[in-house]
Design a protein around this nucleic acid. Sequence first.
DNA 1: TTAAGGATTGACT
DNA 2: GTCAATCCTTAAT
Length: 201
Amino acid sequence: MALDRALLLASAVELGPSLLGSLISHTTPEGTVTIRLSELEAYVGNGVDPGSHAHRGKTKRNASMFGEPGHLYAYFTYGMHVCGNIVCSPEGQPSGLLMRGGEVVEGIELARHRRTTTNTDRDLARGPGRLAVALGIQLADDGSDVFAPPFLLRAGGQSGRVLSGPRTGVSGPGGSSSYPWRFWIEGDPTVSPYKRHPRAE
DNA sequence: TTAAGGATTGACT
DNA sequence: GTCAATCCTTAAT
């Protein structure tokens, strides 16, 4: 499968399964880390998706999601974590794929160095916040082009069947299971655990 | 201007 | 299994 900016003109919901297994690299003076994506979540906004940051329109934070496809939407959450999205759909249409989990296939030493609290290699990029740290994504990388240095997004040999299900951790009208827009590779050990139940209820 | 909550993780019982 | 950490964004005074 060819993977370029033109492909990303489709909506995140359609692209989720296609982008599983893709390889994303980030090069810094410290070295290069490449992650094979095993889990993604689609967000579309435009009033359609109550769970999306873009649901209520364009703001300073989510401006990147409204921009050109193939760029990064990095946001800060829970006072301590950064998460990274790949922006999809034509400019003006907010749509993105949250990178929730993956396997470090290059630069594993550097990823281990960044993730001091994790012991096993499997957990290095298992979860959105962890993946961002392992890959070296920071808030300053918001809006970066994933097809240009220091980033690089390319197709990878996809292995395994793609499954889909309800998204995690999303609240709002309709609850977290309104849309089956979470995609992962069947049986992949780097898919994040499916639970999350905030104190509320 | 002030208050509430979050696309989570890691530590602790 | 339960719960605190921590700060930015959004909504309500």
